[in-house]
Amino acid sequence: MTLSNGSGDHEALRDGIRQTRAELAETVQALANKADVKARIKGSASQVTGRLRGQAAHVTGQARAQAGERVGEVRSTVAGANRAVRRRPLPWGAGALAVAALAAAVVVLVMRRGQR
Rank of each mutant, 00 (worst) to 15 (best):
N5Y: 03
N5D: 15
A30D: 12
L52R: 00
R88Q: 13
L97Y: 03
R14M: 07
L24V: 04
R64M: 10
R112Y: 09
L13I: 09
A65V: 02
G61L: 00
T77W: 05
N33P: 04
A35D: 14
R14K: 07
A103S: 01
R87K: 14
V106Q: 01
L3P: 08
L109Q: 08
V48L: 15
A57F: 06
R116E: 08
T20F: 04
L24G: 05
R116H: 06
G114Q: 13
L97H: 01
T49V: 12
A79Y: 00
T77D: 15
L102T: 03
H10C: 12
G50H: 06
Q29H: 08
N5Q: 10
R18S: 08
A39N: 10
G54E: 02
R87V: 03
L31Q: 13
M1A: 15
N5I: 00
S76E: 13
G80R: 05
R112T: 07
V71A: 11
R51Q: 15
G68T: 06
N33I: 03
T20K: 08
V74R: 08
R14N: 05
V28R: 07
H10M: 12
G61V: 00
V85Q: 03
A22S: 09
A105H: 02
L13G: 12
A22D: 11
A84Q: 08
A100C: 07
H10D: 13
R14G: 04
A96K: 00
G68P: 02
A81Y: 13
I41L: 14
L13W: 04
L102K: 09
A32N: 15
G16E: 14
A65M: 05
G50W: 02
V108C: 03
L90S: 12
K34Y: 02
T60C: 07
Q115D: 09
R116N: 09
R51I: 10
N33W: 00
Q19W: 09
V110D: 08
M111G: 01
V28S: 10
Q66E: 15
V85M: 07
D15I: 05
R75V: 03
V85F: 02
V99F: 02
V85T: 04
R88T: 12
R116Q: 10
V71D: 11
R116A: 07
A94F: 03
A32P: 04
R113V: 03
A22T: 07
Q19D: 15
R21Q: 14
G80P: 03
S4K: 12
A35S: 13
G114W: 07
S7T: 04
R116C: 05
H10N: 12
K42L: 11
T77V: 06
E23H: 05
T49F: 15
G6H: 00
T77R: 14
E23Y: 04
L24W: 05
R83M: 06
R64C: 10
T49I: 12
G114T: 07
A12E: 08
A100S: 08
M111I: 01
A22C: 04
V37L: 07
P91K: 04
M1V: 05
P91S: 01
G93P: 00
A35E: 13
A65K: 09
G16M: 10
W92D: 05
M111H: 05
A81R: 13
R83A: 14
S76L: 08
I41M: 11
K38W: 02
G68K: 06
Q47S: 13
G43E: 08
M1C: 12
L97I: 03
G54R: 00
L24T: 06
K34A: 10
A45K: 00
